[in-house]
Computed example of a mutant assay.
Amino acid sequence: MKPNTHDLLARVAPFALYMAFVAVLEIPALVSGEPLSPSFVLALYPVKAALVAAALLTFRKFYTDLDWGSLRRPAPTTLSVCGGIAVFVLWINLDLPWAVQGELTSYDPTQAAPGWALALIIARVAGAVLVVPVMEELFWRSFLVRYLIDRDFMAVRAGTFTLFTFTATAVLFGLEHQLYLAGILAGLAYNAIYMKTGSLAQCVLSHAVTNGLLAAYVLATQYWRFW
């Protein structure tokens, strides 16, 4: 069976929008060899986060598998939090030269015009903790993991994997990130949480914990390359 068009679009469109903004930053530099101005890069992130958030809100009624009530279950929620912490620890220790795609870029809001740094930090943290985990988990776990099993992906039970879908989606998830090895391990961790709990909300929670700790670490150390 073909998937419901709205269910598919609701999961793919926010992710595609996010990746389009990534392309806006990457393609001009690849073509001209000149990086975009830091002020433009800084200003683009709040726009990207806001538009992706708007897309998620627009399609919210189609996220029937985003089961927030499952977070009230202590055991799986503890697993998700611990998984998020473990991924964070791995992430900050895997910025090795051979584990990075290209030159690791950074998002340094202190380079902004006076008075704008705080607003950019708030936007970056909100995007990383509240928007990106929902957007990515809807695409990778809710959609792609199940779509690779059956085109009618909504008919596939949440948390269902084959060996191929478990490994392939983790690798693809990793390749989405500059720190590809850390990304692959994160993909494996979030897939394992999805398989163990059968809850997309638990994956979002784990992902948000990772990103929240990473944001706190970046702000405390000013090691902007992790942003």
Rank of each mutant, 00 (worst) to 15 (best):
38 P>H: 08
197 T>A: 13
119 A>L: 12
226 F>Q: 07
212 G>D: 03
34 E>A: 14
77 T>F: 05
130 L>R: 07
23 A>E: 06
177 H>S: 10
153 F>Y: 09
220 A>I: 02
177 H>W: 09
32 S>T: 12
223 Y>F: 15
68 W>S: 05
168 A>Y: 09
147 Y>D: 01
48 K>C: 11
136 E>F: 08
61 K>P: 11
54 A>K: 11
52 V>H: 15
26 E>Q: 14
135 M>W: 11
13 A>C: 12
154 M>V: 13
131 V>P: 09
85 I>M: 10
74 P>I: 12
53 A>I: 09
15 F>E: 05
193 I>H: 05
118 L>V: 11
219 L>I: 00
127 G>M: 01
126 A>M: 11
159 G>K: 02
60 R>H: 15
114 P>G: 05
15 F>L: 02
81 V>L: 09
16 A>D: 06
187 G>H: 05
148 L>K: 11
29 A>V: 14
149 I>P: 08
53 A>S: 09
136 E>V: 09
162 T>R: 10
15 F>R: 04
168 A>H: 05
123 A>V: 06
23 A>R: 04
1 M>Y: 15
203 C>M: 03
186 A>P: 00
144 L>A: 06
207 H>E: 09
191 N>K: 08
166 F>M: 00
97 P>L: 10
198 G>E: 14
187 G>M: 03
130 L>E: 08
198 G>F: 09
113 A>I: 03
71 L>K: 07
141 R>L: 04
20 A>K: 04
84 G>N: 03
172 L>I: 07
57 L>T: 08
99 A>F: 04
65 D>L: 00
193 I>P: 01
189 A>T: 07
86 A>M: 10
182 A>Q: 05
91 W>I: 09
59 F>V: 03
141 R>K: 14
125 V>T: 06
77 T>W: 05
46 P>Q: 07
130 L>G: 14
145 V>C: 14
208 A>K: 04
2 K>I: 13
50 A>P: 03
78 T>R: 15
